[in-house]
């Protein structure tokens, strides 16, 4: 812990990691709240995993893997919606298909790429300590875009999420806004792959929100609180990872879930205390 604090201003990668933590908590706080409120966690898992297909293709073609992942996950996000509506296939089945299709394509193309793929594990499990300046730049720009989008369209996003049919009946551009948010979901996922990796990303989009939901019940407050909780979780995980020399992605998720446990415990104890107070008052 002291090591970490001493080194933080000495090593550039630690400063980069702090910035990445900030942008990750902003984007995941907003998008994660949308995902949780709309109950599309499974859809988001599908988009996350299918992005691996894009990474594989990008490796094969010699592109930037993040670009490949972005294109592929946007395609998956809109594709899942499209096939559900037009193809009349059940939504969760379509998600399952895209989920595994992306992983399969990724594995095939990485296998076909000559030479060794050294960074593969980074994409699967994340590595917040190796976030590059370029990566950080994209994250910063994108965070700004997501924040602005949510500020401008907040009412629409809220009401379309809450009651899509009613919004449609009022003549709001429901499909357009839903698809735009889905694109943002896909991009949030891709830009945060570096932080915790494909396999662990879903908890960055759900655990802070679940904790926030213990303490507050409105859409806006859950967004704000889960940003804060996400940031605390990532920093805590970073410190643990640095001190114990264990993989950062896993320790971030682990510390978030410990936070979840502590919060739940706190609530239970607070409730007991309240009840016993009421009982005491009744006895008087």
């Amino acid at each position: 812990m002291i090591d970490f604090l001493q080194n933080i201003f000495e090593y550039k990668f630690l400063i980069n990691a702090l910035w990445a933590a900030l942008f990750a908590s902003i984007t995941c706080g907003l998008i994660g709240t949308y995902i949780v409120a709309n109950r599309i966690v499974f859809l988001s898992g599908g988009i996350t995993h299918s992005s691996f297909g894009g990474i594989g293709i990008a490796y094969f073609l010699g592109w930037n893997p993040i670009l490949g992942a972005a294109l592929f996950s946007i395609l998956a996000a809109l594709g899942i919606e499209y096939f559900t509506e037009k193809g009349k296939v059940r939504n969760d089945s379509v998600i399952g298909i895209w989920w595994s299709l992306g992983m399969a394509i990724g594995i095939i193309f990485i296998y076909l790429t000559p030479g060794y793929a050294p960074n593969l594990m980074t994409y699967l499990f994340g590595s917040i300590l190796t976030v590059s300046d370029t990566n950080l730049f994209y994250m910063a720009i994108f965070s700004l875009v997501v924040v602005l989008f949510f500020i401008i369209f907040f009412k629409n996003i809220l009401f379309i999420s809450f009651d899509e049919k009613y919004a449609k009946a009022q003549g709001l551009p429901v499909t357009l806004i839903k698809n735009l948010v889905l694109v943002l979901v896909a991009l949030t996922i891709v830009l945060n792959i570096k932080v915790v990796g494909i396999i662990l990303l879903i908890s960055l989009l759900t655990v802070p929100q679940s904790i926030a939901n213990f303490f507050t019940q409105t859409f806006k407050n859950i967004i704000l609180l889960s940003m804060l909780i996400g940031f605390i979780g990532i920093i805590a995980g970073l410190i643990i990872s640095y001190t114990l020399n264990i993989p950062s992605g896993a320790s971030i998720i682990f510390s978030l879930i410990v936070l979840f446990g502590i919060s739940k415990l706190f609530l239970i104890i607070a409730n007991r205390y309240k009840i016993s107070k009421i009982q005491q008052n009744n006895r008087k």
Partner: peptide
Amino acid sequence: VDEQFPITVLDVVLSGLMLKNRI
């Protein structure tokens, strides 16, 4: 409607006025 959706009563009623001031 999703009963667990995080939205307040006032916000629900306000959404009835959405069409007037659009996006």
